[in-house]
Amino acid sequence: MDRPNYITPAGYSALRQEYEQLFATERPALVETIAWAAGNGDRSENGDYIYGRKRLREIDRRLGWLSKRMKAAKVVDPAAQEDRSRVWFGACVTIVDEEDRERTLTLVGDDEADAGAGRVGWNSPFARALRGAGVGDVRRVDLPAGEREYEVLAIRYPD
């Protein structure tokens, strides 16, 4: 990876929890089902065996990806941010666009981003444009629908 994988403690915990669930629970149960299905004879028409092998490959790929992401993770606690007057990782930012529509965004790690819930990834166009901004600053964001301007109304960090 060419850049650090910043992530909040909660985001890292979610990755770790998913890894543990797949590795300790789902994968062993699936291996047991595959072994049972393999013992039933002809594997070429055995749906349990074929689906089980396919699902096992999916789980192993996901475990590999999760392992790489956790190794590259740099856990940053937003509550420990020293400069709370500017937008940095973990900030909860209230912005307003040219049509006076307010939005509240939280800058989180790319692995924990969920635009529908207002959590934008640290490397997204919004986050890149807002980095280092203070209250009252106007920033331009290149979006698929075109360039828009946003003013920063408020910046909060968790306690």
Rank of each mutant, 00 (worst) to 15 (best):
D2T: 11
I7N: 00
T8S: 10
S13Q: 13
S13R: 13
A14L: 15
L15D: 03
Q17M: 09
E18H: 00
Q21W: 12
Q21C: 07
F23S: 15
F23D: 11
T25E: 09
T33N: 09
T33D: 14
A35Y: 02
W36H: 11
A38F: 07
N40G: 13
N40H: 13
S44D: 06
E45P: 05
G47I: 15
G47R: 09
G47Q: 15
D48S: 13
Y49A: 02
I50N: 03
Y51I: 12
Y51K: 05
R57M: 09
I59N: 04
R62Q: 05
R62P: 03
L66A: 04
L66G: 06
S67N: 02
K68I: 00
R69V: 00
K74F: 05
V76Y: 09
P78H: 12
A79P: 07
A80N: 10
A80R: 05
Q81R: 15
S85G: 10
R86W: 13
W88N: 15
F89Y: 11
A91R: 15
V93F: 04
T94P: 05
T94E: 11
I95L: 09
E98H: 03
E98A: 05
D100W: 04
D100V: 09
E102L: 02
R103T: 14
R103Y: 14
T106H: 12
V108T: 14
A115V: 12
G116T: 07
G118P: 05
V120P: 07
S124V: 11
P125D: 11
F126L: 13
A127R: 09
G132V: 10
D137N: 14
V138F: 01
V141N: 05
E147F: 00
R148G: 00
P158L: 08
